[in-house]
Design a protein around this nucleic acid. Structure first.
Length: 582
RNA sequence: CGGGGCGUGGCGCAGCUUGGUAGCGCACUCGCUUUGGGAGCGAGGGGUCGCAGGUUCAAAUCCUGUCGCCCCGACCA
């Protein structure tokens, strides 16, 4: 089809919008793809809507290709199914809630596990019906505390969410793998640079889970990758390799020392090194015990939890939250310390913790046979050479110390470096949480019910438009990959006289005839304006119809590389077909 | 929720300190010129200065309150 700029509903801006920070936001607004309507709410103008539709098309093709079937639910949903799974309350303030005229509670769907589960329950009842995978491309609503970065993080956004229903764990594993493979194909077709990281399952519940992160400096998620291997993981999910265990026999006896004025690791290390013990200590030789409290969902009472880790590392609170999920976790208050007199702040050691029944979990580096300097449970006193497995035995291991650049990669190859990414896809093996909530069973061949197991898989479709823009632009504007570009060719008529315009129209018609999507700049504007707009809009191939037309040539420019070549008018169609289809 | 900033034609901004005709650039309309890198000249249209109250002869400007938005953090499939 031919889209004429003279009548296209489009106004480009010469200046960046004041409220935009990240490149994708600035460029999508400047190039007239989207306009802000409300915080976290954007309208799609013609060119933007085309890109969004193109992304959707790629997603649908790959979902359909492995047998997923598209359906669609309302965005406006009744409360009851979400009460059955407790998410009406658990989802918290991020859920958009509203009432109808009778006062009945509704919500705008943030994600649709409940509806999919109920729908399958309503239609299917035999093991012969399974497995099945359903998906939808739907507008989702989340009352984000702080929407930001244009359409990268909105309160209304388009998401593809799919759900697999299987009879067995092996079936679920296959459905999961099918999705993973499809996602790889989708993101490859969209020309994205991304990594797949193991993730925590978050509020969704469930076990195995991976995130697809598009690599972008402006991303909100931090992940680590190995310098040597293709290992990549969300920081919350990085596992620490435990050092080998050591023998206990050759360790000196634990000794309590008076260590006045040493409430912090730094002061303690300085004191020890000045105390003439005949060796040098570092912060990594100390065992720091951090006290927190946790509360299981539905419980009223908080439970103490002590985390022991090498003194040179801090507890990463996000990793801690992920580790104790679904329980909540908080730091201890002064009141808590006062209530538990055996906790001597600054001098807490394993002894008092274990003696008083406080659950004590340690960093993986604290293995049997390692000797530590740690608190002696008495103000101004520490114990040196307290040996794990001899002098104390922790209740277990918890891997929540901060991850640092330079730490060894968990796969044993290379070291870790940090990078930023934007979550574009997330796949989960949900398990039976939702099936349990709705008693979703199939009648098995032995006439006994089999509880269905589910997977849940999402792609941020509208976010992808911004992510592609984020990864594919330069200082002049957007540069769309061919698969999602709003047109195949942008024909610029570089002049205002009728002969040029007629020439441009004719070539555009021929390209259209040949099956290409043509954006024709037939405006009576000066050439400079048109060139600038073409670069801003970002169609990958620009065809300039200008002064060469009299000699029978036009110019083909590649938006990304800037390369240009003169082509005889007679050869334009086959040449461009070659460029576009390559 | 904590911290910071901003609300003035469609967009980007100045004016506010020191109260007195609301201004600039872009965009838009008309005319002439120009025509391969965001053209020139001329003439125009368009603004309850976020909202409410107060001080004053007089408020975009000073005072009080309030609403909204943006950024950083917290939070977040």
């Amino acid at each position: 089809m031919i889209t004429r700029m003279s009548s296209l509903f489009l106004r480009t801006l010469r200046e960046d919008p004041a409220d935009a920070e990240v490149p994708s936001h600035k460029l999508l607004v400047r190039a007239g793809y989207v306009r802000r309507v409300a915080p976290g709410g954007y309208s799609w103008l013609p060119l933007g809507l085309r890109v969004l539709r193109n992304v959707e098309r790629v997603v649908r093709e790959e979902m359909d290709a492995f047998g997923a079937q598209e359906i669609q639910f309302p965005a406006l949903l009744p409360k009851e199914p979400y009460e059955a799974t407790n998410r009406w309350t658990e989802y918290g303030p991020n859920l958009f809630r509203l009432k109808d005229r009778r006062g009945a509670d509704y919500l705008l769907g943030p994600t649709h596990e409940e509806l999919f589960a109920l729908t399958v329950k309503g239609e299917y009842s035999s093991y012969k019906d399974y497995p099945v995978t359903l998906y939808q491309v739907q507008t989702k609503y989340r009352d984000e505390a702080r929407p930001r970065a244009g359409i990268l993080r909105g309160r209304e956004f388009v998401m593809k969410d799919s759900y697999s229903f299987d009879l067995t764990d092996e079936g679920l594993a296959k459905s999961y793998q099918d999705h993973r493979d499809a996602y790889v194909r989708i993101f490859d077709r969209l020309g994205l640079e991304y990594v797949i990281v193991s993730a925590t399952s978050g509020a969704m519940g469930g076990s195995a889970s991976e995130e697809f992160l598009a690599v972008a400096e402006t991303g909100e998620d931090t992940f680590v990758r190995s310098t040597e291997s293709d290992y990549a993981a969300n920081v919350e999910a990085v596992t620490t390799i435990a050092p080998p265990e050591q023998s206990i026999e050759d360790k000196p006896e634990a000794q309590v020392h008076r260590t006045p004025g040493t409430p912090t690791i730094e002061t303690l290390v300085d004191f020890l090194n000045a105390a003439g013990l005949g060796r040098t200590f570092t912060a990594a030789d100390t065992l720091k015990n951090v006290l927190v409290k946790t509360r299981e969902p539905g419980e009223k009472e908080w439970t103490l939890l002590a985390v022991g880790l090498p003194g040179d590392r801090e507890v990463d609170f996000k990793r801690l939250e992920a580790a104790v999920e679904p329980a909540e976790v908080e730091l201890l208050t002064e009141t808590d310390f006062a209530r538990n007199a055996f906790l001597v702040k600054g001098y807490i050691g394993p002894g008092a913790l274990l003696a008083n029944g406080v659950r004590y979990l340690v960093d993986p580096r604290v293995v049997r046979g390692t000797a530590w300097v740690t608190g002696a449970d008495e103000a101004e006193h520490h114990v040196v050479d307290l040996v794990a497995g001899r002098d104390f035995t922790p209740d277990g291991v918890i891997d929540v110390a901060e991850v640092r650049e330079g730490d060894p990669s968990p796969d044993g190859r290379g070291t870790l470096v940090a990078a930023r990414g934007i979550e574009i896809g997330h796949i989960f093996q949900l398990g039976r949480k939702y099936a349990d909530a709705f008693s979703l069973d199939a009648l098995g061949p032995d006439s006994r019910p089999v509880r269905i197991t589910m997977g849940s898989y999402g792609i941020g479709v509208s976010r992808l438009v911004a992510v592609i823009a984020e990864q594919s632009h330069d200082d002049r504007g957007l540069i769309w990959p061919r698969n999602v570009a709003p047109a195949d060719v942008h024909v610029v008529v570089a002049g205002k006289d009728d002969a040029l315009l007629a020439g441009g129209e004719k070539i555009a018609a021929e390209l259209h005839e040949a099956g290409l999507r043509v954006l024709l700049d037939d405006r009576r504007a000066s050439p400079g304006v048109k060139f600038k707009d073409a670069e801003l809009v970002g169609v990958p191939t620009i065809l300039v119809v200008g002064r060469g037309l009299a000699d029978g040539t036009v110019e083909v420019k590649d938006r990304r590389s800037g390369d240009r070549e003169e082509i005889a008018v007679a050869d334009v169609v086959p040449h461009l077909l070659g460029v576009v289809r390559s």
